[in-house]
Amino acid sequence: MHVAVKVVVSCAGLVASLLLQTLLALADVPVSVDVLLVAALGLAAAGFFGPDLEVRTKAARARADFRAALSAFLDLVWITLAGGAGVEVALLAAAEVGRGRAFTQLRRALDAAQLTRTTPCSTLRRLGEDLDIAELAELAASISLAGTEGAKIRTSLAAKAKALRTHLVAEAEAEAQAATERMALPVTLLFLGFLGFIAYPAVTQVLSGL
């Protein structure tokens, strides 16, 4: 499906270049064939690689949303552990409480572990590899130590949840700073254009007097 979208958008770029050539011909605007060829190839390339950039952006946003949900999941797990529940029970209970796509994926992974009689850490590690989320692999490693170091797992999960929230806040601040910098560029260009508009009559008079 994704490849089909890329092909369609690329063909649309070629069609757009042909329409542009037709409009220029009707308007009697001379344009080099080389320029039209470069424009056609540029539009086709942009149409072919544009969907990839969109998919990467959506994937990065989805991973950020998953990490935000994972921090809440970790909090729920260690709170349930503090209430005396076992590790598997705490994982299932925390996954059942939450809502959203991330919690749905966590529930499916834990249900798959029960159905296949495998450990939750293996399914969570596999989910982390599929989604390219390293924090899930770290969670799986912490859970695998629960059998020998059960007294420390609550502290470990609480620390991981706090570190994950701190990382998310830092990313949000960096993104907001980058957005602010991007907004400053159009304002600067507008200001320079306004100055040029004001100074143009004076510059014209000076140049005409020379």
Rank of each mutant, 00 (worst) to 15 (best):
G128A: 06
F49W: 05
A94F: 07
V7Y: 09
L115M: 13
L124T: 08
R107G: 09
V29W: 04
Q177T: 02
A158S: 12
I79Y: 09
L110E: 08
P201E: 14
P201R: 11
Q177R: 10
L136P: 01
P186V: 15
E138K: 08
A94M: 12
A112T: 14
Q105Y: 13
F191V: 06
E135T: 06
R154N: 09
T148M: 11
I133G: 08
R165V: 07
G100W: 12
A85V: 10
P30R: 14
A158P: 06
V89P: 01
V3Y: 03
R63A: 01
F73W: 07
A16W: 12
R125D: 11
A46Q: 07
G50P: 01
L70K: 05
R107Y: 15
A178R: 03
L70M: 07
P51E: 14
G128M: 09
E171Y: 01
S208G: 04
A59F: 01
A72M: 08
A199V: 11
S32G: 14
T188E: 08
G83Y: 11
R61P: 03
V203Q: 01
A109W: 15
L192A: 02
V3F: 06
L91A: 03
V38F: 02
R99H: 13
A68I: 05
V87K: 00
E181P: 06
R99F: 12
A134T: 09
A184N: 01
L124H: 04
L81P: 01
G47N: 05
F197H: 04
R99W: 10
L18F: 02
L24S: 02
L210M: 10
G193W: 10
R99K: 11
A93C: 11
E173Q: 05
L19R: 02
T123V: 08
G47I: 02
A163D: 05
V203C: 02
V9W: 14
M183S: 08
V169E: 14
L190H: 07
V97H: 13
A184T: 05
F48M: 03
V206G: 00
A141R: 06
A178C: 03
V29R: 06
R125P: 02
T204E: 09
